Simulated assay, not measured.
Amino acid sequence: MDTDLLRTFLEVNKTRHFGKAATNLYLTQSAVSFRIRQLEIKLGTPVFTRKRGDLRLTAAGERFVPYAESILQTWGRARQDVALTDSYQQQLTVGATSLIWEMDSCSDWLEQVEANQPDWALRTESLSRQQISNALLEKQVDVVLTSEPPKLADLQQQRITAFELLLVCSEPDQDLESVSELPMVYLDWGTRFGLEHGRIASLQRTPVLHSHACQPALKFLLNRGGVGFLPSTVAQPWIEAGALHVVKDSPAMANELYLVWLSTSDKHEDIEALVSNLENDA
């Protein structure tokens, strides 16, 4: 499968416009149309329905999207793996959600890995929580950093650090009862967080913003006002500046960050050695 066809397919799907896709890919519109036709010939089925002003995926196109994304991701990783120079003997691909990547502890861990294994090249991937299990099983990533390890056979995990989520709001002197009148921002930290959040009666309403990243939630609270849980490391500078305030008598939700990998991974021994070395250095 020609990877250029896959990139063109995904760009057309993203823009839903042949002309815009052509601009983004630095191609002519006719070249984009030709590539999509070639892809459809190879697949033996149309991937888009073409109606004037209305470009949509067919059912087959919808099913093909995750495969195209997976193939390109695997191809990119393979190119880096085989192109390692004499200076780099191994590549470690690390996956995490956007929320996790925004935490300082992730950057700190990557720096520790680089210091411990200077002959390793590091590659990071952003995943949704739903993609984590498949990414491990399909070897799209070697390890993941997560607060909710997936329930898989042959799973290995190592605790990296602990962190807290604080309920903060834009208004001072608020308690769990009074924040029921404020717009709510919901950061999606997963199932366990959702259950604990569901026990707080004053937060049981439709969020004005449901986000999978800290920065949009933080900016919304600062600029528009409201209430929501943020990691303490993200919220603390703004609390000290007086721009955000901890809700009185609110629970601080304790979480832990884990490194997760499969014992069936072909890099299992290297990962275990890395984990052991980092523990000894701590």
Rank of each mutant, 00 (worst) to 15 (best):
R192I: 06
P231Q: 02
L182R: 08
T161K: 08
H212Y: 13
L176F: 06
L165F: 02
I160D: 06
S211N: 03
L176H: 09
F163H: 10
Q236W: 09
Y186V: 05
H210C: 01
D188W: 07
E196V: 06
S170R: 03
F193C: 02
D188F: 08
L176V: 10
E171W: 00
E196G: 09
F220M: 09
L218M: 10
L230D: 01
E196Q: 15
Q215E: 12
F163N: 02
L187T: 04
I200L: 15
L167A: 06
A217R: 04
G198A: 10
V208G: 07
G226M: 05
P237M: 10
E177A: 12
G198K: 10
A217L: 02
L167Q: 02
V234R: 02
V208I: 12
L176D: 03
V179K: 08
D173L: 05
C169Y: 08
H212L: 12
P183D: 03
F163L: 08
D173K: 11
Q204G: 01
K219E: 14
L165M: 04
S180K: 14
Q204M: 12
V179N: 07
L218S: 04
C169H: 07
G228T: 00
C169S: 13
V185H: 03
T161S: 15
L166R: 12
E164H: 14
G198H: 09
L166W: 15
P237E: 03
G190Y: 08
H212A: 14
D188E: 13
F220K: 11
G225R: 09
L230H: 01
T233W: 12
F163Q: 05
L176C: 13
V227D: 06
L222H: 04
V179G: 05
A235N: 03
N223E: 15
L209T: 00
E177W: 08
L195I: 11
V208D: 09
P231A: 04
V179M: 13
P172S: 04
D188P: 05
H212I: 08
L222V: 05
C169A: 10
S180R: 14
E196W: 13
D188G: 07
P183K: 11
V227L: 07
Q236Y: 10
S211D: 03
A213S: 14
P231I: 03
G198F: 04
H210E: 09
P231C: 08
A162P: 00
